[in-house]
Amino acid sequence: MIRYALTRLALLLLGLLVASVLIFLTLRVLPGDIAQLIAGTNSTPEQIAAIREQLGLNEPLPAQYVDWIGGVLRGDLGTSLLTGSSVAAEVAQKAQVTLPLGIMALAVAVLFSVPLGVLSAMRRGRSDGTALSVGAQTMAAVPVVWAGMMLVVVFAVWLGWLPAQGFPRSGWQDPAAALRSLILPALTIGIVEGAMLLRFVRSATLQAVGQDYVRTAAAKGLTRNAALIRHGLPNVGLSVITVLGLQVAGIIVGAVVIEQLFALPGIGRMLVADVGARDLPKVQGELLLLTGFVLVVGFVVDLLHRVIDPRQREAS
C-alpha cells in the first residue's frame, strides 16, 4: 500500500509539473502586451520598455518559468501586476466562497442522485422508475446558466425565500446570510451534476443486479431488492466514488459560470476578470491551484479504491 501511494504521489507531482509548463506557455501566446496594458494607451515606447524590464518580460521564457515555479515551490504564487497584492492571499480570500460552494454543490448532487438512482434501477419498467430516468436525462441536458435563472425566478423572484445575487460584505462573520447566498448557486450546480450522476448510479445498479453474487444471495432466500442492497450496493459505491472524482472538475467549471451569474466574489469570477485584464501571475497561480486540486482529488480517489476494495490489494 505504501509503495502504491508513493507511486501515485510521484505521478501526481509529474502531472503538476506538466500542467505548470502548459499553463505557462499557453498564457504566453495570448494576444496583447501586459506592459502596454499597465502603461496605458498614452504611454511612450520608453515607458513600455521600462515596465517590461521591471517585470522581467525581456527574459527568455525558460528563465521566466524557472523563476515562477521556484516561487511556487516556496509557497509564493507571485504578485498581481495590476494591484500589487499577493496572489496567494487573494486566492485564499476568494476560496472562502468557492470552496463552500463546491462542497455544498457536491453534497446536493450526492444526496439526491444516489438514492434516486438506486430507486430508478429497482423500479425499472414501472412508471415511477421510468419517470426518474427521463427526468434525469432531461436535467443532464439543461445548461447550468438556464437552470440557475429558473431557480432565481422561482425562489428569489416569485417566493422571495432566497437572495438572487451577491455575498455578504461581512463574509462568514454572518454565517446564516452567507449560507443563504450560496444555496441557489449550490442547488444549480448540484442538480445538473447530480442528474448526470443519477444516470450513472442507475446504470451501475442495473449492472449489479445481473451479477452472480446477487443472484446467489437471492437464491438463498433474500428478495431481489434485499440482495441488491446488501451485496450489490457496496460495489456500486466504488464506481460512484470514481465518478464523483471526475465530477469535481465539472463542479469547478460550473462554479466559474455560476459565480458570474450570482455575482459571487469567488475564484471563478476572479479568474475571468484576471484573464480579461491579462494579469498573468494571478491567472497562472489560479489555474495551477485549480489543476492541482483536481489532481489531488484523483489521487485521493485512487487511494480510497485501494483501501476499500480488497481485490485490488490482492491483485498487487
Rank of each mutant, 00 (worst) to 15 (best):
M1N: 03
R8I: 04
L9D: 08
L12Q: 04
L14C: 11
L14S: 09
V18E: 06
S20D: 12
V21S: 09
I23P: 08
F24E: 11
T26D: 03
G32A: 06
A35T: 11
Q36G: 14
G40H: 00
T44F: 00
A49L: 04
R52G: 11
L55R: 10
G56E: 08
P60K: 10
P62K: 09
P62G: 05
A63F: 07
V72D: 00
L73V: 15
R74F: 02
G78I: 08
L82V: 14
V97T: 01
V108Y: 07
V108M: 08
A109G: 06
S113W: 13
V114W: 00
V118Y: 09
A121E: 01
T130L: 10
T130M: 10
S133N: 15
Q137G: 10
T138K: 09
A141N: 10
M150R: 03
V153I: 15
W158P: 03
L162R: 12
W172P: 00
D174A: 10
P175N: 13
L179I: 15
S181H: 15
L182Y: 13
I183P: 09
I183Y: 10
P185E: 05
A186F: 13
A186Q: 12
I189N: 03
I191E: 06
I191V: 14
V192M: 04
V192D: 08
E193G: 11
A195Y: 06
R202V: 05
R202Y: 07
V209H: 04
V209C: 04
D212Y: 13
V214E: 03
T216F: 14
L222W: 03
N225Q: 14
A227H: 04
A227M: 10
G250Q: 07
I252E: 03
V253Y: 05
A255C: 11
I258F: 05
E259S: 09
F262R: 07
P265T: 00
V275L: 15
V275Q: 00
P281F: 01
K282W: 09
Q284S: 05
G292S: 02
F293Y: 11
V300C: 01
